[in-house]
């Protein structure tokens, strides 16, 4: 189980309806089904992952979320999850609106671009930061819309999104004192629980 999943599962109520955008191989939904008896639905576009979802007995819809969630009724899910994908979307702001329309609350995780090592990398080398979490070159990265924790907070304020919970963690999904004191500087991964 991915470490960020273990963190966010606390925010998912038993027997709730969960929509996982970009559900991958369905492992998270399968886990939630087993532990929380949720009603699951995943969106995925990768054929191999979709097959793994069927294997795992997870409900999976082959659908590109970038083309919208118009076929999902407003407030038809308790929780909508978007893990490590926000930064790879063409219009993260529009997906955010759609997620908050479809779900009563939403859980997002994304890499914090303002992490101090990224800052140092850019300052010292003058080149686009690379790290374990962001291993790509600038030209082949799927991460076209990286943001910082401050950026995301600003967007939430602008869109009048309420932050219910926020966790800022390292690669091992641990939250340390420094990260809590200066999240935008020391946080590697941001995990948000939001609603409108």
């Amino acid at each position: 189980m991915r470490a960020d999943f273990l963190l966010i599962q606390d925010w998912i109520a038993p027997h709730s309806r969960v929509l996982d955008l970009g559900c991958g191989n369905g492992a998270f939904l399968a886990y939630l089904k087993q532990t929380k008896h949720i009603h699951d639905c995943g969106l995925e576009i990768d054929a191999a992952n979709i097959e793994k979802c069927l294997d795992a007995g997870v409900n999976v819809i082959e659908q590109n979320m970038e083309q919208g969630l118009g076929n999902f009724e407003s407030q038809s899910f308790d929780t909508v999850v978007l893990a490590q994908t926000l930064q790879a979307l063409q219009r993260p702001d529009m997906i955010l609106d759609e997620m908050l329309r479809v779900g009563k609350n939403c859980i997002l995780t994304f890499p914090n671009f303002a992490y101090w090592r990224h800052r140092v990398y850019l300052a010292r080398l003058g080149r686009m930061p690379k790290s374990e979490l962001l291993p790509y070159e600038w030209y082949d990265t799927p991460n076209v819309h990286l943001c910082t924790i401050h950026d995301f907070d600003a967007l939430c304020r602008e869109k009048r999104i309420r932050v219910l919970n926020r966790s800022v963690v390292d690669e091992q999904q641990r939250s340390k004192v420094l990260m809590r004191a200066l999240p935008n500087l020391f946080g590697i991964n941001a995990i948000y629980h939001i609603t409108r």
Binding site: R17, H39, C41, I50, C53, L54, N59, V60, I61, E62, Q63, N71, F72, E73, S76
Partner: peptide, 10 residues
Amino acid sequence: LKAKKDVSYL
């Protein structure tokens, strides 16, 4: 989906 049924689609 609207009827909140278990469905997969390929």
